[in-house]
Design a binder for these strands. Structure first.
Ligand SMILES: [Mn+2]
Ligand SMILES: [Mn+2]
Ligand SMILES: [Mn+2]
Ligand SMILES: [Mn+2]
Lengths: 216, 216
DNA sequence: CCGTTTTATTAGGCACACCTAACTCTATAT
DNA sequence: ATATAGAGTTAGGTGTGCCTAATAAAACGG
């Protein structure tokens, strides 16, 4: 019954992430996210369905309860790895994604526990996303994208949904990282940029990027 | 030219280790060490020879210069991983081998550097074996197996060549770990046990085990 | 010296995870 | 209404890394 390869973990993790904004996930989006051909994903999806890890209907792909459970375990290992990399090994937050994506498949339950304890039971990854607990429970906060704030609204950055290192580095250079307080000064009309104020400085920020920054 | 899979790394690492006491390594020993069938190893050896990573003659298998270079890089990552596991993540020395054997294939050159620096440039793994530097240079000391000491000889334990967790735990419980001073009180004749004195206590130790403990 | 054991290889096959090319079906646009 | 674009699958194929069964060659013991 123990039928879990690194690749299966990778698929489940991707489906989980994509499910956040597209509930039944489409084959094509999944293929794009995994950087694989559509037929490869189509085939693997069939195997995942056989193993009862996903339901595959005309609407798209959904994780089953079991698939969800495994996905959250992988995400837990991914986010703990990221914290290990930044907090203990001195990586920057823009360098950790690819490293963690490899590490997450090489971490035993014992190591998971040891990392968690050594880090002092962190609640989030360096990008502000919650680390599922050992039972897969995720604490979810009600958040708003920065892009939806009105002029003069304030918020505290909780998470930054961005994997591109260049962009992450740029955001960090502006001080746009979790736990930081940000104020929207102006919102340009017609989908134009936001003028935001963060730790005393004023920056223009595109809507696209702003929508990836979640505040509370 | 970049043709390096985790399995190839594993083979090269095993060959390197076996070469320590059997110079051209035999297929059967390699198969035994890797816990694979002889034909699997025979086949892979052919591929390694094609890639110029080993020379395969009637005498057996030897690493080429390039094979040696890669093997040492893998061993470097293995031993750095072990140190990370014990020194930072709080594992015991008997728990780290299998973990490190997975981690060593998931560590980038950047991570290698970061681990090394975070650990304060350790010179050995928890079992006392030297960590090759970034250029693959290994500092080799002249060592004697504990089993070859005469009665009343003293030595400082440098390394313990043992992978079985049970045995490692046992040795640690006796205080037989690197950097510890050990004195041979008696040597029983006919290949019998040694009576050793370590940190004030006296223990009987089989020849077999004693030969895996290297002292200076 | 000959039979037995050990060692190594060949042959054939399988699971996994990927690919391209070709096809079907649906949504959309003119 | 028909042409086109997009999404998804089927078919056929590849490379990697493992297996068992059979075979060949070498080493050893009496
Ligand atoms: Mn991954
Ligand atoms: Mn993260
Ligand atoms: Mn390994
Ligand atoms: Mn070691």
């Amino acid at each position: 019954m123990k039928a879990d390869t690194p690749r299966i973990e990778e698929y489940l993790e991707s489906i989980y992430k994509l499910q956040q904004d597209e509930h039944p996930v489409s084959t094509s989006r999944l293929a794009e996210h995994l950087k694989l051909s559509a037929p490869s994903v189509s085939e693997m999806t069939k195997k995942l369905a056989q193993k009862k890890l996903v339901n595959h209907t005309e609407k798209g792909i959904c994780l089953t309860q079991e698939g969800n459970r495994i996905a959250k375990k992988v995400i837990r290992r991914h986010r703990l790895s990221e914290r290990l990399l930044t907090d203990i090994l001195g990586f920057r937050w823009d360098e950790v994604h690819d490293e963690a994506c490899r590490l997450e498949h090489a971490i035993s339950p014992e190591m998971e526990k040891h990392i968690e304890e050594s880090l002092g039971n962190p609640k989030t990854c360096p990008h502000g996303f919650p680390i599922p607990d050992e039972n897969g429970v995720i604490v979810k906060e009600k958040l708003r994208p920065l892009s939806e704030l009105k002029a003069r609204d304030k918020g505290i950055i909780v998470s930054v949904f961005e994997e591109d290192p260049k962009m992450l580095q740029y955001l960090a250079s502006l001080g746009l990282i979790p736990e930081v307080c940000v104020k929207v000064e102006e919102v340009a009309p017609f989908g134009g940029p936001l003028i935001v104020c963060v730790s005393g400085s004023r920056y223009a920020l595109g809507r696209e990027v702003a929508s990836k920054i979640k505040v509370k």
